[in-house]
């Protein structure tokens, strides 16, 4: 599935939740289910420092696709990371560079991605994009 199809799928998924409580419970569960980042990757080089919660991001590549895994010390942040990884990971650098992330706004959680929320999410997206740019520069 391409990036936008996954985004649409998530938006669809979230229409099921009528109130904020169910929505946040779902996000928190996604965070809890996210594969633990190996401690060897939970290091300072991978740290995307937010003012409040922190994000660790590890990147790999396989057959021209970029793969991301990440973790956070806050559960809501972690849940949103799970969604971002579902959308962005396992795509080509070009697809990632061109990706416009609209799903977070559409599911009503845009405020968590605004840079002033200082939870590291905005910086994480920026870092993923930078990684894609760097990867494409090296391979072209």
């Amino acid at each position: 599935m391409d990036i936008n199809s996954i985004q649409d799928e998530i938006v669809e998924e979230f229409t099921l939740f009528e109130d904020w409580l169910d929505k946040y419970e779902h996000i928190i569960n996604l965070g809890k289910e996210l594969t633990e980042l190996d401690t060897s990757h939970r290091v300072d080089e991978n740290l995307v420092k937010g003012c409040q919660s922190q994000v660790w991001l590890n990147a790999n590549h396989n057959k021209g696709k970029l793969l991301f895994e990440a973790d956070s010390d806050a559960l809501i942040t972690k849940g949103l990371i799970a969604l971002l990884i579902r959308v962005l990971s396992n795509n080509s650098s070009k697809e990632i560079m061109d990706a416009e992330l609209y799903f977070i706004d559409k599911i009503g959680l845009g405020n968590h991605l605004s840079p002033n929320r200082a939870n590291g999410l905005a910086s994480m997206v920026k870092k993923i994009k930078t990684y894609a740019i760097a990867y494409s520069a090296i391979n072209n």
């Binding site: 904020w20 409580l21 946040y24 928190i28 003012c51 409040q52 919660s53 010390d73 806050a74 559960l75 809501i76 942040t77 968590h112 200082a118 939870n119």
Partner: peptide
């Protein structure tokens, strides 16, 4: 519990507190 999580949930209930350092 991470302060960010608690603060974000309180915000959903209309309660404004500050979290962080």
């Amino acid at each position: 519990h991470h302060p960010y999580d608690v603060g974000a949930l309180l915000d959903q209930m209309g309660i404004a507190v500050r979290t962080g350092h």
